[in-house]
Design a protein around this nucleic acid. Structure first.
Lengths: 206, 206, 206, 206
DNA sequence: CATGAATGAGAGTTCATTCAT
DNA sequence: CATGAATGAACTCTCATTCAT
């Protein structure tokens, strides 16, 4: 019984946390970390300012939690879709597709995310985030390495750097789309990027 | 004489401005716009806070001036080197090389620059900066389009999007290097990126 | 209940506002607008600086609110007493008496008031205050005009200018009293001023 | 010779002082003491900021000197004209006339003057100014007292208070004129005020 | 648990004053 | 004498954080 009781408490707590983080995402996305105020976040969450401090110890903690939540979601979804894809090419395409879609569905998070992870100021985020960041690149790296071994990707390419470049290409495309600079459909952009990339990396000259 | 006198005054003024902007670059790079304080900038420049306000009207103005100074330098250098290159391939390589070197030499500026221009918050910067940003991509675009016409680049690729992607790939590589994540030499990274890219875009399958 | 609760909140809020305005009156009276600091006002009100900004948006707003509060009170009281007086002479005397008493009871306000409304800088105050100021003179004017019609005041006098002069005479007397330059009692001063004035304006040569 | 040399120096110095004080008058009149900046005063005087500090030790000192200069001029002129007038009535009229004209010719000074001397904050000005202020009222007082003795002014009036009231009535009229609230000519206003006053004070019922 | 009034450290900015030229 | 660049104290205003209710 105490277990269930505790669970109930936790459910409420988790619910409040989610509310706050979603509100925070919106506000941080529009104003950046320093520009956002706890008051705004609280109001966006429909709570009083003091209440926010019952669930998070500081503004910074809210920020990191929001960042982590979105980040983890992105990584999980990316991995799931890549694992489900049968071939190296399909996995690569899954990476791009997933991320473009995720960005479309989580514009607020992506705005924060890009602001933070394109910053050398990334140094400010703890190791935890650096780890998450690298985790993505390594997942890509593994796929690419596998492609090398299967002979469908040129052996001369350094898989590590390649992973990061693929990552950044996708990132760039996402930014263009979010800024409204791309008039192509999401699928067209995906196709274009994948085609370019695959031509660049494939062993048989495309 | 009065002319020289005036020139001397101007020289001092310009010198102070440069001092302040260089100090500001360092501070903004480490702390971001909101995180930096005018006091820190002044101290980094070896001046009193009030003195900074003799040369710039506000913190924001310092920021924009620092951004613009570095940006203009980057654009000029990139254009110069691209124009000097004879072929499409050489121009593309010049783009990558120039930017990697510039980043190495102006680490502070690049940190601010990347933070700002990967931000959806770019909206905050005036049209002037959006213009500068697009100018770079268009320079690339023109080169790529020329390559298409000369038959060395696949006709099916949309030059506009391609320009932005090349831009972002380079950007990603720079960031990796600045963060110390790349163990390759600058030349090796350039070579790798160019090779990948050229394979991806060239008409003859690499 | 919710109504009462809300009322309670409002009461606290109004109480704080009054506290701040009273403190502000004291400080502004001693130091003038620019000379006073928000810190001083806060301290005089027994609050922290930030708290003051919960109730007023700016130093200027505090100033205007303090000015308006005292001004409205003065005008209301003056009008009430003038209306209650039966004859022109009694009304005139009521004007003088009321203002002398009000000044005695609201020394701080009167100090600000006189500083502001003897200033050509009155231009700085909005139309609202100019309106309030003229309103007083016009009330006097109306009484004097009525006196003319009833034949107890000389017809040759311009009621408008007369109103303002009566106003200023009273003002001068108040200032003397506040500065401690008058050794007469309040009643004696009133009597003296009224006598002088009535002699000056009455139709029957006093 | 050294005497003449010194005199020459002094002449330059006096000239500079006058320049600065005239400029200061303009600026203080428009912006008040706190609102005015030494930079503005220097610029209005066609000098560099540092130069101003060669002639005055502080902003406050400039202010007091400007106030004193105008004040002394006003008092001297008033006394001269009053002494030249033959009768009590003429002296009274001279008082009013002189001050109205002086105000018209020295609008800047009068703006400062009224701002300062209607302020209970007058306390801030040293005894020197209080002395000057009272000096005026006493000059009036003497004239009025003389009138009493000659039998042209009612004996029942307290000359001291009367002096101050005359002073304030004139002050009020000046303010109205400076604020553009009086449509009468200067002579008409003088006539009106004198008439009112004389009726009020004269022994023979006007 | 939830609230929001209160706090006060700290930010950007101004400007009287100084002093080397 | 004249200058104006440099200074830094002081000001207004903001906002993360706390705590009594």
């Amino acid at each position: 019984m105490p277990v269930l009781k505790k669970t109930k408490q936790e459910l409420v707590s988790e619910f409040r946390c989610r509310e706050i983080l979603e509100a925070a995402c919106k506000v941080f996305a529009r104003k950046g970390f320093s520009g956002a105020t706890v008051d705004e976040i609280a109001e966006a969450a429909g709570l009083a300012k003091g209440t926010v401090y019952l669930y998070f110890r500081s503004k910074r903690e809210i920020y990191l939690a929001a960042l982590k939540r979105g980040f983890t979601g992105l990584i999980d979804e990316t991995r799931r879709n890549m694992e489900a894809a049968p071939t190296t090419a399909a996995k690569l395409k899954a990476f791009i597709t997933t991320r473009l879609r995720y960005a479309e569905e989580n514009r607020d998070f992506v705005a924060i995310y890009h602001a933070e992870f394109s910053n050398v100021g990334m140094a400010y985020l703890g190791k935890e985030f650096r780890h998450l960041y690298l985790q993505q690149a390594r997942a890509l790296e593994a796929v690419l390495r596998e492609g090398c071994e299967q002979g469908c990707i040129r052996r001369s390419l350094p898989a590590g750097a390649l992973g990061l470049v693929v990552y950044e290409m996708t990132r760039g495309l996402i930014m263009q789309r979010l800024l409204g600079w791309s008039r192509a459909t999401s699928d067209e952009d995906t196709e274009f990027l994948f085609d370019l990339l695959w031509k660049g990396v494939s062993a048989d000259g495309g």
